[in-house]
Write a protein that binds this DNA or RNA. Sequence first.
RNA 1: GUGGCUGUGGCGAAGUGGUUAACGCACCGGAUUGUGGCUCCGGCACUCGGGGGUUCAAGUCCCCUCAGUCACCCCA
Length: 427
Amino acid sequence: MLTNKPKGTNDFLPDEVGRWQALEDLLREVSRLYGYREIRTPIFEHTELFQRGVGETTDIVEKEMYTFTSKGEKSYSLRPEGTAPTVRAYVENKLYAQPQPTTKLYYIGPMFRHDRPQAGRYRQFHQYGIEALGSDDPALDAEVIAMAMDIYRRLGLKDLTVELNSVGCPNCRLQHRQKLQEFLAPKKEQLCKTCQGRYERNPMRILDCKDSNCQKLTEGAPTIDQMLCPECQSHFTAVQKHLHALEVPYNLNSKLVRGLDYYVKTAFEIVATGIGAQGSVGGGGRYDGLIEQIGGPAMPGIGFALGLERILLAMKEQGLDLVADNPVEVFIATMGEDAQLMGSKLSQQLRQEGFAVERDYGNRSFKAQLKAADRYQVRYTLIIGEDELKNNMVQVKDMATGKQEPVALAEVQVYLNRNIRGREINE
RNA sequence: GUGGCUGUGGCGAAGUGGUUAACGCACCGGAUUGUGGCUCCGGCACUCGGGGGUUCAAGUCCCCUCAGUCACCCCA
């Protein structure tokens, strides 16, 4: 069928796009305030980048990537997330050699995952994300979380909770993994099928299983927070201290496990209620080994990503809206062929002057033209008929009051500048 | 990958198997000659996602298929 788009994708029509642009404007502004600069990376990358970066055993890499080969070349994948590409670009362009101690980058754009779509989940979806590369200061962890909350606050969103955990470093994780497997070994057969698979490959994920039986079986299981090494423990404590100082409330959630392998230490997720089953509107964490993993120097990093569709969904749910300015400012209505020519000429002049001008193209009745002007919600309609043509003038009708007054053709620009822009110009 | 629900004009939505498929919104035109938003009048579905079947008769029943949607899973 030529007339339907691929499953899980969306057309954004002009009214909707206005909302997106307003959201993007806000994101760019907040980025600036926190010192982040935009980076734009390709929409597709070498598949290995995600395999190695995100992790072979993650759902994203295992079953959700759009992977293809082009003309017998290597395997490529549409990006399923933004961190690996950003880090790749950071390394490839040697941004770590720049003078600043921490490089702060943000991105905004489409991501692709082959899931079954549902409320708040799409195959092409859009993320805004930040990455702060080069510092392992816990103050930065806290600031990153605070920044995410700052964005939601500016949007007017309420009732969001920060779920916080530390997933430790590779060392404490290894310890935890062993203890966990010891704990679960006698119950292994009772776990659900996917968890039996997770037992060897990624046992931490079993703690996060939604299956009620698995949840019961994992009661009392060793959680990572009990087994953090001294360094991870003190880092985590410091992060919380900074969060208190920044007055960011959070819930400690020792079962929070992020589905991307690169996370270490701080992991967090921001959850909204009322937008369906996909409640997470953002999440992130620290990824101190990733830069090295991708082939760069051993440098720490932290970041988060927000789902734009979900933010808009949550805003809609809470009765919030972002609106763009009314695009059309002036409408030109004409009667007769000569007047129409004059109208064309005038509309071009006014556009040069910076006014958004619209007119009717069907050669329709004058009444229909005014009706159209009303629908555009313009401030003024310029009326040109035979009389006006003869006298080199137009009628300027104020659509709100219904009043109109004659203005000399040469004075129209001045009139509109004064009344729409509020500025005087002398010619 | 699995499951539930839905599918009637641009949108919303009625329609116990039986003549011309309600209604609302939107849209278009008109209500004396060059003036919108309100009101009134008129117009707007050879057809009920598609295909097949049952029946004298199907939008209404059955099967298949496609699409949408929600949920599992996972995540933004």
